[in-house]
Amino acid sequence: MELQQERQLPLPRDTVWDALNDPEVLKACIPGCESFDRVDDNAYEAAVKAKVGPVNARFKGKVTLTDLNPPASYSMSFQGQGGQAGFVKGSADVTLTDTEGGCTVGSTAKAQLGGKLAQLGSRLIDGAARKTANEFFDNFVEYMGGSGEPGETAGETAAATVDSAATAPARSQAWVWAAVGAGVVGVILAFALL
């Protein structure tokens, strides 16, 4: 499966970059995201509860970054296990470009889905991925727009921020988080399946 997403955001690229710098933003904005942790220099783990219609599955995913070219582009590979539901594995190329009135985040993801999700849900995969990506960006814009509450996860975010503050990366490592942020978009693109 190949997924192409492009989303124009009414926000300056730097702002988006900085926001994606914050894992708590991502956790708050990724639909169904339950956790989001750094496990190694270029490796991160996320837990996402994907829900499409009557079907739900909890995925644990790993994201590894490659070909980093801050602040414009990078690639990543990701894989996630959803227990009975199956698994997802793939890679994505992400770009941030300045556009009029803001910036555009583009992502081309290649994903392989396996297990029951692939056997049962092929008709819904593209639509679910598109929907999840849209929800992420909607949440993101809303979050950045200062309207404050991107849904229920906001409360949890506040609590979790304290933790992450202790281990927050130095400013110079901002690009790492940005990459991970978009990377998780890739993951959820692929997660959002059935």
Partner: peptide, 15 residues
């Protein structure tokens, strides 16, 4: 079968 992943896409009577 998905040519890349080898997953059986027609795994139920839905497809």
């Amino acid at each position: 079968y998905d040519a890349e992943s080898g997953q059986l896409i027609t795994g139920t009577y839905m497809d």
